[in-house]
Simulated scan of single mutants.
Amino acid sequence: MDLLQLRYFQTVARFEHISRAAEELRIAQPSLSRTLARLEAELGTPLFDRQGRRIRLNPYGAMFLRHVDRALSELDDGCRALRDARDSGLGRVSVASETLLTVTHLLGSFRADHPDADVRLYQSDAAEMSRQLRAGEVDFCVASQPLTGTNLESVELAREEVLLAVPPGHWLDGRESVTIPEIADEPFVTTRPGQWQRTLLDQLFTAEGLTPRLSCEGDEPGASQDMISAGLGIGLIPAMSRQAGMETRVPVAWLHLDAPGCHRVLTLVRNRDAYLSEAALKFREFTTDRPFMTHRLPHRRPLHSHDPAQGVS
């Protein structure tokens, strides 16, 4: 079944006359008749009752026409929206991220530079982002862990250390670093399975043959630091959050984790087969041609206790 068959069926259903429909479509009548016959064969049921040279929609045809009308109407609306966006602005760019704090500054800067772009932002976990890319619901995902799926391509935006945050006055407050076995019995504030903090936490503990003890599992990583500061547990926080200058300041103590792989890699992921609007093309260029706001630690730097920063990115 193809789009041309549906267009032909819709026209014949409107006229209920092959010759008139063929004239309207500017094709030969035999060609139109063959196209309808192939459509009915593919559907496995006749759509018209034949009465000599006249044809009438039967109940199956009437049922199918309702769906065809809606589908073609949506397609026509999409074409018009695309033309309007092309002629009056840059069009739309849709971005998904595991946490909104990671991309807030990026999208704000992009919108300031391109006010004609229609920017849409979604918060999704890794599985949902993969589905959104496959379904064409988003143009890009800013991911903190690998996304699965065919035809997905990614560009690394940043690589940063992930730190351990503990409440002020905690027995680790004042330490420079700590190992996973040393904190095996500590309660952790983290996210639900599927979010990058939880995935990293599980990986670090599994490498030591341990299982983390959880005190809180949430959906918004940005709330983790508030809960840690309140004494509900300890948790993994990316260096980006600590280094960014913030209005809201939440006191915690910071430590390095002596564990291989304790870092986060941010990537920009897209479906290579998907259409990109002008806004999406400009967003990709804007994102990949500038340093992403992150803090890289090639060597260990002293960490000061109670260094305030915003919530998790």
Rank of each mutant, 00 (worst) to 15 (best):
P212D: 10
T190Y: 00
L214W: 13
S224K: 04
Q197L: 02
C216L: 15
G209D: 06
E220G: 05
P212I: 09
A223N: 04
R192C: 08
C216V: 13
A184F: 12
G209R: 05
G209K: 01
L200R: 04
E186I: 06
L200Y: 01
Q197N: 15
I183S: 01
S215G: 07
G218Q: 12
Q197I: 08
P181W: 13
G218R: 03
L204S: 11
W196V: 05
Q197D: 14
R192M: 10
P221H: 04
Q195H: 07
G209T: 06
F205Q: 10
G222H: 07
D202W: 03
F205N: 01
Q197H: 12
R213A: 14
I180N: 07
D219H: 09
G194I: 05
G194F: 01
L200C: 05
I183A: 10
Q203C: 11
D185Y: 14
G222E: 01
A184L: 14
I183K: 00
A207N: 06
F188M: 13
I183N: 03
D219S: 07
E220N: 03
T211K: 02
G222N: 02
T206F: 11
W196Q: 00
S224P: 04
T191Y: 02
E220W: 11
Q197V: 12
F188K: 04
D185E: 11
F188G: 03
E186W: 08
I180F: 10
D219F: 04
E217F: 05
S224W: 12
A184N: 04
G194R: 02
L201C: 10
L201M: 11
L214Y: 04
A223P: 09
T211W: 09
Q203N: 14
P181F: 05
R198D: 11
E182L: 10
P212V: 07
E217L: 04
P193Y: 13
P193R: 12
R213C: 10
R198N: 15
G218E: 05
F205L: 05
T191L: 01
E186Q: 10
A184G: 03
W196K: 02
P181G: 08
A184Q: 06
P193T: 00
E220S: 07
S215T: 14
Q197T: 15
Q203W: 12
C216R: 15
V189I: 10
